[in-house]
Nucleic acid binder design. Structure first.
Length: 219
DNA sequence: GTGCTAACCTATTCAGGTC
DNA sequence: GACCTGAATAGGTTAGCAC
């Protein structure tokens, strides 16, 4: 089984998260009313219970799952025609096919969310590391500046005042802002330029989560 | 506009399998 | 027997169609 989507994925477009909610830009994907077939009507009822005697739940065979999985990889949605075809081929009720696809989509979505979490976490780690490096660099530069100014002031008979309140972040921003070309672009800005994330310098300092402006489509 | 129907969804239940 | 997984159910939303 491939709950981890390691085989051919129906890869969602990365620029949007809407695929979690909307597989085909409809409020409910695949909701297209089609004339119900005789077999499909009454699908809501449990076919296993129809004969009065309560049949026990049965696991699908590996062969059935294999075919269902292959079909799912081809198309995440299940159209009535395909449902009936699978139903005949696998000797399962159409309802069972529909339920399997529904559960499979749920599992797929969960996996996608887990994957997205990993990606975001990685991005966050990268940004955190870069911030740490920049802070260290700023401290070094401040120390150097202090020494130089101290030396100059000694000759003038005084010492400069370096505020302890001054934030590393503001200094960092100022330096980079005043001489952007010399500093070059940070990884984060490159990412932002590539349109993956929309980050401002302000975001930089307050970022607690990657501030990617991906649309969250309400369900 | 309203009612019906069939598709979808999430949350939950329950049974089979594994340790 | 506890825990996990997956098949199935319950209940809700949405959209197309007929009236």
């Amino acid at each position: 089984m491939d709950w981890h989507c390691t085989t051919k994925p129906f890869v969602p477009q990365p620029e949007t998260l809407s695929f979690f909610y909307n597989y085909n830009n409809n409020p409910y994907p695949g909701v297209e009313v089609k004339q119900a077939t005789l077999l499909e009507t009454g699908e809501r009822s449990n076919p296993a219970m129809d004969n009065g005697s309560k049949e026990k739940k049965k696991r699908l065979t590996s062969k059935q799952i294999e075919l269902l999985e292959r079909s799912f990889q081809e198309e995440i949605k299940l159209d009535p025609e395909r449902k009936m075809k699978l139903s005949r081929e696998l000797c399962l009720q159409p309802r069972q096919i529909a339920v399997w696809f529904q559960n499979r989509r749920t599992r797929w979505k969960t996996k996608q969310l887990e994957h997205l979490y990993d990606v975001l976490k990685h991005q966050y780690d990268v940004i955190s590391n870069e911030k740490q490096k920049l802070q260290e660099e700023v401290m070094k530069l401040k120390a150097m500046l202090g020494k130089e100014q101290g030396f100059g002031m000694q000759r003038l008979g005084g010492y400069p005042e370096i505020s302890g309140e001054e934030t590393v972040e503001s200094t960092s921003e100022g330096l980079r802002g005043s001489n952007n070309k010399a500093w070059g672009k940070s990884n984060i800005e490159q990412v932002a330029d590539e349109g993956l994330c929309s980050l401002s310098v302000e975001d930089y300092n307050t970022v607690s989560l990657p501030l990617c402006h991906w649309p969250i489509v309400p369900y």
